[in-house]
Every structure is written in structure tokens, then in C-alpha cells.
């Protein structure tokens, strides 16, 4: 009887201890370091919510920022921007919000936690044509996209890049050098409407498609494996990326310092190296 009791008590004790440890950890997290005294160099922890398309660029930005300001820790939450906007609406603890679409920022503004006046555009993105490095479809100009037999892959309309690609085709069809049937002839070459812009890029990277239309940030880390053909500004859709501090940021000075860093020449150069267009 006693032997059994011992066997039952031990796991229970362990569970209790674990629960206790968990609770202390939670309590510790909720009383995280507050704002530093005004005028001091920024220090402490900063939580940045950023759209998943910013993962690579912002990770590098964060590392550089931490190296610049000793004692600063930046915690990123990269996720679907729609979800992040919803989380902010639901009161998630964030200090800075950066996203790829104004819609998601508007979601956070409506929750009353972001001042619309404080929102700044920090980067621009655009669509480009990509082809495998050995160019099996011999794509050298935008007109080549309409050549019969070309294996073209686009993102589905459900993805933003898919809508921008169609808008490019519409605008080009209005110009005499492309011809009124440009859109129709290009779309006849489409082998697949992929469910995301990343899937579209992967098909080109693997050489399955002769060409695809993706964001200029997609091929940034595979420059040697693909050819990039620019789409002129008048045919392109320029996407603006907004960033803003949260009104109730635990550390407003640090939030401001991070945003200033993103907008400063060094931050802009890092964004540029990931394929973003810089803002002046």
C-alpha cells in the first residue's frame, strides 16, 4: 500500500513543480523590463511583429541593430500579416508592426492601438519576370512572354502577385508595342496558376517553367540561379510596406529607435540587398 502511494505521489509532485515553474516563468515574462529613462541610449527588449515575407530582411536588420546597440534584444514574430493584424487587435504584446499590405495595418489601426499618423512606408516591392539561369525559353524581353509554346507559370489570383501580374498584362496590352492581344497570348502560355508566389518561383528555380512572374524580393537569395527581367514602372504595381510603433509599446524609445534604423541609409541598404526598393 505504502509502496504504491510513493509511486503515485512522485509524478504528482513533479507535475506540481512543473506547473509552479511554468507559472513563475509566465509571471517573469509579464513583468519584463519597462521603458528606460528618457534620454538614455536605447536598451531592453523589443517585440516586432512582421509579415513573413520580411523574415530574411528583418532578421538581418535585427542582428545589425543588436550589434549597434549593446544590451538590446529584438524578438521577432514572423507570420501571415493578416494573422498578426488580428493578434494585435486581440491585444497581443507587440512594440512595432511591419507588414506588406496597408490592409493589415488598417486592421491594427482600427483596433486603436496604432496612430495612423505614425505609420511610415519603409520599403517598396514590385513584380519582375524570372527565368532559369540557362534560359531554356530564351526570354530576353517582355514581348517573349507571348511567344507560342513558352512554358509560363503565374501565381493564382488568390495571391497578390497573381493579381499584379494580370494588371501588368492589362497595362501592356494598352500599349501599341505589345499589341491589344498581348494579355490573351501570354495567358495562353500559362501552364499553371500556382497557389502562392513562392511556389511560382520554385517552379522557375527548378527549371520546370521557362518563365514566371514573382516579386523582386523572391529571387534575392538565388541571384546566380535565375535571370531577372525588370517590368517598367508604368506597367508595374508598386507595393508599399508600412511600419508603425504601437501606442502602448512597453518601450517607446526603443521602438522609435528601431524604426529610425530601418529608415536610415544602413537599414535601407540591407533592405535593398534583399530585393526591396528603397524609400527616399
Amino acid at each position: 500500500m505504502t509502496r504504491h502511494a510513493v509511486f503515485y505521489v512522485r509524478p504528482l509532485l513533479l507535475l506540481l513543480l512543473l506547473a509552479l515553474a511554468f507559472l513563475t516563468a509566465c509571471a517573469g515574462a509579464s513583468t519584463a523590463p519597462g521603458a528606460p529613462a528618457a534620454g538614455d541610449a536605447p536598451s531592453g527588449a523589443l517585440t516586432v511583429f512582421a509579415a513573413s515575407s520580411l523574415t530574411d530582411a528583418f532578421s538581418t536588420l535585427g542582428d545589425t541593430f543588436e550589434a549597434e546597440y549593446q544590451g538590446v534584444t529584438i524578438n521577432f514574430s514572423f507570420a501571415n500579416a493578416q494573422q498578426l493584424g488580428t493578434q494585435i487587435t486581440e491585444g497581443a504584446p507587440a512594440d512595432v508592426f511591419a507588414t506588406a499590405l496597408q490592409d493589415h495595418m488598417d486592421l491594427a489601426i482600427r483596433s486603436g492601438r496604432i496612430d495612423p499618423e505614425a505609420v511610415t512606408v519603409f520599403a517598396r516591392n514590385r513584380i519582375v519576370v524570372v527565368a532559369p539561369a540557362d534560359n531554356p525559353g530564351n526570354v530576353t524581353s517582355l514581348r517573349d512572354l507571348a511567344r507560342p509554346g513558352l512554358r509560363l507559370v503565374l501565381a493564382d489570383q488568390a495571391a497578390a502577385a497573381g493579381q499584379y501580374a494580370l494588371s501588368f498584362l492589362d497595362k501592356a496590352s494598352a500599349l501599341p508595342e505589345y499589341g491589344a492581344d498581348y494579355r490573351e497570348r501570354v495567358l495562353a502560355n500559362v501552364r499553371s496558376y500556382e497557389d502562392s508566389v513562392r511556389a511560382t518561383f520554385t517552379k522557375v528555380l527548378l527549371g520546370e517553367a521557362d518563365a514566371g512572374i514573382v516579386f523582386s524580393t523572391d529571387p534575392a537569395s538565388d541571384r546566380d540561379r535565375v535571370l531577372v527581367l525588370e517590368i517598367p514602372a508604368e506597367l508595374n504595381t508598386i507595393v508599399e510596406y508600412p511600419i508603425a510603433p504601437l501606442d502602448d509599446a512597453a518601450n517607446p524609445a526603443l521602438a522609435r529607435a528601431f524604426i529610425d534604423f530601418v529608415l536610415a541609409p544602413r537599414g535601407q541598404a540591407i533592405l535593398g540587398s534583399f530585393g526591396f526598393q528603397q524609400v527616399n
Binding site: V190, R191, S192, Y193, E194, D195
Partner: peptide, 12 residues
Amino acid sequence: TIIFAGNLAGRT
């Protein structure tokens, strides 16, 4: 299917 055959209405 969506990865290997792609997505084109009426075809795949």
C-alpha cells in the same frame, strides 16, 4: 497534384 501537375482549369 498541385506541386507536380500544377493548377490549370480544365487541364490539371
